[in-house]
């Protein structure tokens, strides 16, 4: 997969969809392309968060530790991003992510990501918009849940 294809992939990630392609290209160029085989761990719950991952191809499982061992809570498909919240708010990983098949991801380093946001305010606003959108959805969901 070439850099320009990666840019196309990134554009399909909601978080990045409003950002101009030139910036996405820079983000892709400065990120590492990493391959995992099935079963390999991308990161573990409790680890310090140093990067976000965009799935380019393959599948991955999100696992959460519980009293009865690890439970799979979600599955990641291509074009999805994982770990972005943790690098934005300096928290540790809230779940473990494991490759479920041969997996190709773009690893966006935390410092690069933050640096880009600082450098290009329009990108930050775009990300803010997506996050606010998510929040309003969550709030709406919450109200629905309460009233139901």
């Amino acid at each position: 997969m070439l850099l320009k294809d990666e840019v196309g992939m990134l554009q399909r990630v909601p978080l990045f969809s409003g950002i101009e392609p030139a910036k996405l290209k820079l983000l892709a160029f400065t990120s590492d392309r990493v391959n995992y085989s099935a079963g390999q761990i991308l990161f573990r719950q409790g680890d310090e968060a140093d990067a976000a991952y965009v799935i380019l191809s393959g599948r991955a499982d999100i696992l959460v530790d519980s009293d009865s061992g690890q439970i799979k809570v979600a599955e990641l498909l291509p074009n999805s991003i994982v770990g972005e919240i943790a690098i934005l708010c300096n928290s540790s990983r809230t779940a473990t992510v494991r490759a479920a098949s041969d997996l190709e991801v773009l690893r966006i380093r935390k410092d690069h990501f933050l640096r880009l946001m600082k450098e290009f305010p329009e990108m930050t606003i775009e990300i803010l918009r997506v996050l606010a959108d998510r929040l309003s959805h969550t709030t709406a969901d919450l109200i629905d849940a309460r009233t139901a």
Binding site: A22, L26, T30, D111, H112, R115, E119
Partner: peptide
């Protein structure tokens, strides 16, 4: 040049 021309010279991305 397309990727980097806008960045200040001391930017950490230049390491890449």
């Amino acid at each position: 040049i397309e990727l980097f021309a806008d960045l200040p010279p001391d930017h950490q991305f230049f390491q890449q």
